[in-house]
Write a protein that binds this DNA or RNA. Structure first.
Lengths: 246, 246
DNA sequence: CGGCACGTTGACGTTTTTCAATAGCCGTGG
DNA sequence: CCACGGCTATTGAAAAACGTCAACGTGCCG
């Protein structure tokens, strides 16, 4: 199931043909393993490699010159990392495994060839990037105009939405195997403030976060609280692409 | 010169062939005008239209349900707006002219066809989206981990960099025809605080911002102050794309 | 047992926001 | 011509949100 996370995600978007599915399945073959804390981009191969996350959590982040860290996004199973770096030769952030991870390393040229030989798949992958940009936009809104409580609500709802798409949630709960420090670095808050805000939200019976496990007690109220809108996570391919044959 | 902003920008990336340039020039024909405050996306045509900004300033923003506003990006001459909306049928933000603007409306299908018939151009346009994502990432870092002074420094440096690429700067100065409120909404600050911070930076002889005109007095110190790195604005196409013929 | 990573708590500082008032600029209408 | 309103910039005072520092607890693992 998880090994098909990518195929599954993209199937939501386009009706994949058999040959397309085979190509994707080829990409999904586990051929690597990362320990917690390891970097996703091995420096040997530099930018010429895309990593498909099969199992585990990772993140992208940037560090300012005095050590402050900002996590810009979380990478979940089924997500591709490094497509932009591969296409444009620039990687302006670090990528690190937050838990032990199973991955599939994909040759950069294979991805580039997709753009030439399988434009529909390329379009689907570009859609993935577009979705990421949409999430980044929402993060900007959070960091710019939402307070601590609203930021946490939004992040936890968004993660629930994403994890649902790859089928690893249980109703309104899911595993969140990261520390409060990572949440802080993602939401632009201090560890202490994240801790206090989480406690306050727990008291208000909005949500619970303990031992790496999240329970959304009142998702309706949470959504209202932070103006959550899942539209930014949805989408469909332009009909023109449907006409492309392989 | 400005009418070629798009061609110019993309030329930095790929050696365009004559036929490709002609297509781009076709897109650059001014065929619309927007008054300050007008929306870029006319609701009649909905998502099936891409707008190329030829002259003026615009922005994308989101509004929370209690009215707070966050500007997620500024749109400058040579920028395309609505590519994602056109490819994936989702537009999850508003787009508005900040000044009077000259624009070229481009039929969405024409853009989609690019992906099918002129993959190299499509790749170049995708590169534009990737650059936007990179800027968005930097904005996340700003909002999450930089204080008011650093945010302003970073924004003003980034705008200078972008405007330089389309040739509308004068040494270390440029016109910035927006209000302090827009800067506040972009940087996640209050108007009052933007005002005070600008004054303080003026006193420190870092930069000046008056009457819609920015002067960067000490760009070296500014860059150090906010860990500015223009790498996120650069890039080159994967060599494979060079082999594509038309 | 000791060390380490993580969560929690309290006291105190700083940054930033909010509220409220004033001043300058500019176009409009009388 | 001048008065007026609307928009933007500016200022001061007070409050709220959030950060920092330092300490302590707890569970895990070698």
């Amino acid at each position: 199931m998880i090994a098909n996370a990518l195929t599954g995600k993209l199937s939501l978007l386009v009706d994949l043909e058999k040959s397309e599915k085979e190509i994707l399945d080829g990409f999904c073959q586990e051929n690597g393993f990362l320990l917690k804390g390891q970097s996703l981009t091995s420096y040997d191969t530099d930018c010429d490699e895309v990593v498909l996350l099969l199992e585990g959590w990772a993140c992208r982040y940037k560090i300012l010159n005095d050590g402050r860290r900002q996590i810009t996004s979380f990478i979940l199973p089924g997500d591709l990392s490094g497509v932009r770096a591969c296409l444009f030769g620039v990687s302006d952030y670090e990528t690190e495994a937050l838990t032990d991870c199973k991955i599939a390393r994909i040759n950069g040229s294979d991805i580039v060839n997709l753009y030439i030989e399988h434009p529909r798949l390329a379009a689907a992958i570009t859609w993935g990037s577009a979705r990421e940009e949409a999430m980044l936009t929402e993060r900007v809104v959070s960091l710019g105009r939402r307070n601590a409580k609203e930021r946490i609500a939004h992040l936890f709802l968004e993660l629930h939405w994403r994890l649902e798409a790859v089928g690893v949630t249980e109703r309104m709960a899911y595993e969140l195997p990261i520390t409060q420090e990572m949440i802080a670095d993602c939401l632009g808050l201090s560890i202490v403030h994240v801790n206090r805000t989480l406690q306050s939200m727990r008291k208000d019976k909005l949500l619970e976060y303990r031992n790496g496990y999240v329970i959304l007690h009142d998702s309706k109220k949470l959504k209202r609280l932070c103006s959550f809108d899942s539209e930014h996570l949805e989408g469909e391919l332009h009909p023109e692409f449907e006409n492309l044959s392989e």
